[in-house]
Design a protein around this nucleic acid. Structure first.
Lengths: 115, 115
DNA sequence: GGCGTTGCCTTGCAGTGCAAGGTACCTTGT
DNA sequence: ACAAGGTACCTTGCACTGCAAGGCAACGCC
Protein backbone atom coordinates (compact mmCIF):
# COMPACT_ATOMS: atom_id res chain seq x y z
CA UNK A 1 0.00 0.00 0.00
CA UNK A 2 2.80 2.37 0.82
CA UNK A 3 4.53 1.43 -2.37
CA UNK A 4 1.50 1.75 -4.63
CA UNK A 5 0.67 5.11 -3.10
CA UNK A 6 4.17 6.35 -3.75
CA UNK A 7 3.88 5.13 -7.30
CA UNK A 8 0.59 6.94 -7.82
CA UNK A 9 2.05 10.07 -6.28
CA UNK A 10 5.13 10.21 -8.45
CA UNK A 11 3.08 9.22 -11.47
CA UNK A 12 0.92 12.27 -10.95
CA UNK A 13 3.97 14.47 -10.52
CA UNK A 14 5.52 13.27 -13.75
CA UNK A 15 2.55 14.50 -15.72
CA UNK A 16 3.69 17.11 -18.16
CA UNK A 17 7.30 17.09 -17.09
CA UNK A 18 8.49 13.86 -18.69
CA UNK A 19 7.81 15.36 -22.06
CA UNK A 20 10.20 18.25 -21.47
CA UNK A 21 12.77 16.14 -19.66
CA UNK A 22 13.00 14.14 -22.86
CA UNK A 23 13.49 17.33 -24.86
CA UNK A 24 16.18 18.43 -22.41
CA UNK A 25 18.05 15.14 -22.77
CA UNK A 26 17.87 15.38 -26.54
CA UNK A 27 19.25 18.90 -26.30
CA UNK A 28 22.57 17.43 -25.21
CA UNK A 29 22.87 14.69 -27.77
CA UNK A 30 20.76 12.42 -29.92
CA UNK A 31 19.38 9.31 -28.23
CA UNK A 32 17.15 6.38 -29.08
CA UNK A 33 14.06 5.13 -27.27
CA UNK A 34 15.45 2.58 -24.86
CA UNK A 35 18.37 4.87 -24.08
CA UNK A 36 15.96 7.65 -23.12
CA UNK A 37 14.18 5.37 -20.68
CA UNK A 38 17.50 4.46 -19.09
CA UNK A 39 18.76 8.04 -18.86
CA UNK A 40 15.57 9.16 -17.18
CA UNK A 41 15.87 6.37 -14.63
CA UNK A 42 19.49 6.91 -13.76
CA UNK A 43 19.31 10.68 -14.29
CA UNK A 44 17.07 10.49 -11.28
CA UNK A 45 14.06 8.64 -9.92
CA UNK A 46 12.24 9.63 -13.15
CA UNK A 47 11.76 5.91 -13.71
CA UNK A 48 9.46 5.23 -16.60
CA UNK A 49 8.71 2.51 -19.11
CA UNK A 50 8.63 2.04 -22.85
CA UNK A 51 4.84 2.04 -22.70
CA UNK A 52 5.16 5.68 -21.72
CA UNK A 53 8.09 6.60 -23.91
CA UNK A 54 6.98 5.50 -27.34
CA UNK A 55 3.56 7.13 -27.33
CA UNK A 56 5.27 10.25 -26.01
CA UNK A 57 7.87 10.21 -28.75
CA UNK A 58 5.16 9.74 -31.37
CA UNK A 59 3.35 12.77 -30.01
CA UNK A 60 6.48 14.90 -30.06
CA UNK A 61 7.15 13.83 -33.61
CA UNK A 62 3.60 14.69 -34.64
CA UNK A 63 3.97 18.11 -33.06
CA UNK A 64 7.21 18.68 -34.92
CA UNK A 65 9.35 19.04 -31.84
CA UNK A 66 11.68 16.19 -32.62
CA UNK A 67 12.99 14.53 -35.77
CA UNK A 68 14.20 10.96 -36.24
CA UNK A 69 16.70 8.99 -38.22
CA UNK A 70 17.17 5.24 -38.36
CA UNK A 71 20.66 4.00 -37.66
CA UNK A 72 22.22 0.59 -37.75
CA UNK A 73 23.30 -0.62 -34.33
CA UNK A 74 26.72 -2.22 -33.67
CA UNK A 75 24.72 -5.22 -32.54
CA UNK A 76 21.00 -5.91 -32.39
CA UNK A 77 18.10 -4.38 -34.31
CA UNK A 78 18.28 -0.91 -35.88
CA UNK A 79 17.61 2.09 -33.68
CA UNK A 80 15.55 5.18 -34.21
CA UNK A 81 17.51 8.19 -33.02
CA UNK A 82 15.77 11.40 -32.03
CA UNK A 83 16.99 15.00 -32.26
CA UNK A 84 15.48 18.36 -31.35
CA UNK A 85 13.97 20.55 -34.05
CA UNK A 86 14.08 24.36 -33.72
CA UNK A 87 10.46 24.13 -32.56
CA UNK A 88 11.52 21.66 -29.92
CA UNK A 89 14.28 23.93 -28.68
CA UNK A 90 11.88 26.84 -28.45
CA UNK A 91 9.38 24.72 -26.54
CA UNK A 92 12.09 23.60 -24.14
CA UNK A 93 13.28 27.15 -23.50
CA UNK A 94 9.73 28.26 -22.86
CA UNK A 95 9.10 25.39 -20.51
CA UNK A 96 12.17 26.16 -18.42
CA UNK A 97 10.68 29.53 -17.56
CA UNK A 98 7.29 28.03 -16.89
CA UNK A 99 8.79 25.33 -14.71
CA UNK A 100 10.80 27.73 -12.58
CA UNK A 101 7.69 29.82 -11.93
CA UNK A 102 5.62 26.77 -11.09
CA UNK A 103 8.29 25.34 -8.85
CA UNK A 104 8.59 28.58 -6.92
CA UNK A 105 4.84 28.72 -6.43
CA UNK A 106 4.64 25.20 -5.08
CA UNK A 107 7.70 25.76 -2.90
CA UNK A 108 6.13 28.86 -1.43
CA UNK A 109 2.89 27.09 -0.61
CA UNK A 110 4.56 23.99 0.77
CA UNK A 111 7.29 25.90 2.54
CA UNK A 112 10.04 23.94 0.82
CA UNK A 113 12.04 26.85 -0.53
CA UNK A 114 15.80 26.47 -0.60
CA UNK A 115 17.37 28.96 1.77
CA UNK B 1 -2.73 29.33 -29.48
CA UNK B 2 0.01 30.61 -27.26
CA UNK B 3 -2.46 31.06 -24.48
CA UNK B 4 -4.14 27.69 -24.81
CA UNK B 5 -0.79 25.97 -25.00
CA UNK B 6 0.33 27.69 -21.84
CA UNK B 7 -2.90 26.65 -20.20
CA UNK B 8 -2.43 23.03 -21.23
CA UNK B 9 1.15 23.15 -20.02
CA UNK B 10 0.39 24.47 -16.57
CA UNK B 11 -2.65 22.21 -16.33
CA UNK B 12 -0.41 19.22 -16.79
CA UNK B 13 2.04 20.56 -14.21
CA UNK B 14 -0.67 21.02 -11.61
CA UNK B 15 -1.49 17.33 -11.69
CA UNK B 16 -0.91 15.85 -8.31
CA UNK B 17 0.38 19.03 -6.72
CA UNK B 18 -2.87 20.93 -6.25
CA UNK B 19 -4.01 18.24 -3.88
CA UNK B 20 -1.08 18.80 -1.55
CA UNK B 21 -1.08 22.54 -1.94
CA UNK B 22 -4.59 22.42 -0.54
CA UNK B 23 -3.39 20.35 2.37
CA UNK B 24 -0.55 22.81 2.96
CA UNK B 25 -2.95 25.74 3.04
CA UNK B 26 -5.20 23.92 5.47
CA UNK B 27 -2.17 23.23 7.64
CA UNK B 28 -2.01 26.94 8.45
CA UNK B 29 -5.68 27.52 9.18
CA UNK B 30 -9.11 26.22 8.31
CA UNK B 31 -10.60 27.47 5.05
CA UNK B 32 -13.72 26.97 2.97
CA UNK B 33 -14.02 26.05 -0.70
CA UNK B 34 -14.16 29.40 -2.41
CA UNK B 35 -11.46 30.72 -0.12
CA UNK B 36 -9.16 27.89 -1.14
CA UNK B 37 -9.60 28.73 -4.80
CA UNK B 38 -8.72 32.36 -4.08
CA UNK B 39 -5.68 31.55 -1.96
CA UNK B 40 -4.29 29.26 -4.64
CA UNK B 41 -4.70 31.98 -7.27
CA UNK B 42 -3.14 34.79 -5.28
CA UNK B 43 -0.68 32.48 -3.51
CA UNK B 44 0.72 32.15 -6.97
CA UNK B 45 -0.30 31.43 -10.55
CA UNK B 46 -1.91 28.21 -9.21
CA UNK B 47 -5.15 29.54 -10.68
CA UNK B 48 -7.89 26.96 -10.54
CA UNK B 49 -11.66 26.75 -10.51
CA UNK B 50 -14.41 25.40 -8.33
CA UNK B 51 -14.94 22.61 -10.82
CA UNK B 52 -11.52 21.40 -9.77
CA UNK B 53 -11.74 22.20 -6.10
CA UNK B 54 -14.94 20.50 -5.02
CA UNK B 55 -14.27 17.10 -6.55
CA UNK B 56 -10.81 17.32 -5.03
CA UNK B 57 -12.15 18.16 -1.60
CA UNK B 58 -14.62 15.28 -1.83
CA UNK B 59 -11.78 12.94 -2.63
CA UNK B 60 -9.69 14.17 0.28
CA UNK B 61 -12.64 13.74 2.58
CA UNK B 62 -13.24 10.21 1.33
CA UNK B 63 -9.59 9.40 1.93
CA UNK B 64 -9.82 10.75 5.46
CA UNK B 65 -7.22 13.47 4.96
CA UNK B 66 -9.48 16.36 5.78
CA UNK B 67 -12.54 16.88 7.99
CA UNK B 68 -15.29 19.43 7.60
CA UNK B 69 -17.65 21.51 9.70
CA UNK B 70 -20.46 23.74 8.56
CA UNK B 71 -20.34 27.29 9.84
CA UNK B 72 -22.72 30.17 9.51
CA UNK B 73 -21.30 33.02 7.47
CA UNK B 74 -21.51 36.70 8.58
CA UNK B 75 -23.41 37.19 5.35
CA UNK B 76 -24.51 34.81 2.60
CA UNK B 77 -24.99 31.07 2.63
CA UNK B 78 -23.34 28.79 5.18
CA UNK B 79 -19.79 27.64 4.52
CA UNK B 80 -18.14 24.30 4.80
CA UNK B 81 -14.78 24.68 6.51
CA UNK B 82 -12.03 22.14 6.07
CA UNK B 83 -9.28 21.09 8.46
CA UNK B 84 -6.43 18.61 8.29
CA UNK B 85 -6.74 15.22 9.96
CA UNK B 86 -3.66 13.47 11.39
CA UNK B 87 -3.69 11.36 8.23
CA UNK B 88 -3.70 14.54 6.19
CA UNK B 89 -0.73 15.94 8.08
CA UNK B 90 1.21 12.74 7.58
CA UNK B 91 0.42 12.75 3.87
CA UNK B 92 1.56 16.36 3.59
CA UNK B 93 4.82 15.68 5.38
CA UNK B 94 5.49 12.70 3.18
CA UNK B 95 4.72 14.69 0.06
CA UNK B 96 7.13 17.46 0.97
CA UNK B 97 9.98 14.95 0.87
CA UNK B 98 8.72 13.45 -2.36
CA UNK B 99 8.33 16.87 -3.93
CA UNK B 100 11.82 18.03 -3.04
CA UNK B 101 13.31 14.90 -4.59
CA UNK B 102 11.21 15.24 -7.70
CA UNK B 103 11.99 18.92 -8.04
CA UNK B 104 15.71 18.29 -7.78
CA UNK B 105 15.52 15.59 -10.42
CA UNK B 106 13.71 17.81 -12.88
CA UNK B 107 16.03 20.71 -12.13
CA UNK B 108 19.04 18.56 -12.79
CA UNK B 109 17.70 17.36 -16.12
CA UNK B 110 16.53 20.80 -17.24
CA UNK B 111 19.55 22.58 -15.85
CA UNK B 112 17.42 24.95 -13.79
CA UNK B 113 19.08 24.39 -10.42
CA UNK B 114 19.36 27.36 -8.11
CA UNK B 115 22.93 28.28 -7.41
C1' DG C 1 -41.44 39.48 -3.79
C1' DG C 2 -37.66 39.63 -7.17
C1' DC C 3 -32.80 39.86 -8.31
C1' DG C 4 -27.96 39.53 -7.72
C1' DT C 5 -24.34 37.43 -4.94
C1' DT C 6 -22.14 33.87 -2.59
C1' DG C 7 -21.07 29.24 -1.89
C1' DC C 8 -21.61 24.33 -2.83
C1' DC C 9 -21.90 20.56 -6.03
C1' DT C 10 -22.32 17.40 -10.47
C1' DT C 11 -21.73 15.83 -15.28
C1' DG C 12 -19.05 14.87 -19.14
C1' DC C 13 -14.81 15.40 -21.43
C1' DA C 14 -9.68 15.57 -22.52
C1' DG C 15 -4.97 14.56 -21.83
C1' DT C 16 -1.31 11.50 -20.26
C1' DG C 17 1.33 7.91 -17.87
C1' DC C 18 1.30 2.95 -17.48
C1' DA C 19 0.72 -2.22 -17.58
C1' DA C 20 0.38 -5.74 -20.65
C1' DG C 21 1.00 -7.60 -24.81
C1' DG C 22 2.87 -8.08 -29.54
C1' DT C 23 6.25 -7.90 -33.62
C1' DA C 24 10.69 -7.84 -35.88
C1' DC C 25 15.58 -8.12 -36.11
C1' DC C 26 19.97 -9.70 -34.63
C1' DT C 27 23.33 -12.82 -32.17
C1' DT C 28 24.75 -16.96 -30.00
C1' DG C 29 24.81 -21.82 -28.97
C1' DT C 30 24.27 -26.35 -30.53
C1' DA D 1 20.71 -24.52 -40.06
C1' DC D 2 17.76 -23.97 -36.41
C1' DA D 3 16.21 -22.70 -31.80
C1' DA D 4 16.53 -19.55 -28.02
C1' DG D 5 17.29 -15.34 -26.06
C1' DG D 6 18.07 -10.50 -26.18
C1' DT D 7 17.29 -5.89 -28.04
C1' DA D 8 14.38 -2.38 -29.80
C1' DC D 9 10.22 -0.77 -31.54
C1' DC D 10 5.18 -0.12 -31.13
C1' DT D 11 -0.09 -0.61 -29.78
C1' DT D 12 -4.31 -1.28 -26.91
C1' DG D 13 -7.06 -0.31 -23.08
C1' DC D 14 -7.35 1.63 -18.61
C1' DA D 15 -7.14 4.95 -14.61
C1' DC D 16 -6.64 9.23 -12.80
C1' DT D 17 -7.22 14.15 -12.48
C1' DG D 18 -8.08 18.90 -13.84
C1' DC D 19 -11.52 21.64 -16.12
C1' DA D 20 -15.53 23.87 -18.50
C1' DA D 21 -20.21 24.25 -18.15
C1' DG D 22 -24.12 24.11 -15.79
C1' DG D 23 -27.28 23.72 -11.77
C1' DC D 24 -29.03 24.50 -6.97
C1' DA D 25 -29.79 26.74 -2.47
C1' DA D 26 -29.36 30.37 1.01
C1' DC D 27 -28.90 35.05 2.01
C1' DG D 28 -29.21 40.31 1.57
C1' DC D 29 -30.83 44.35 -0.66
C1' DC D 30 -34.02 46.98 -3.04
Amino acid sequence: MEVSEDAALTTALRRGTIEYCVLALLDKRELYGVELVQQLSTGLGMTTSEGTMYPLLSRLRRNGRIATTWREAPAGPPRRYYTLTPDGEAALTHFRTEWVAFRSGVDRILGTEIR
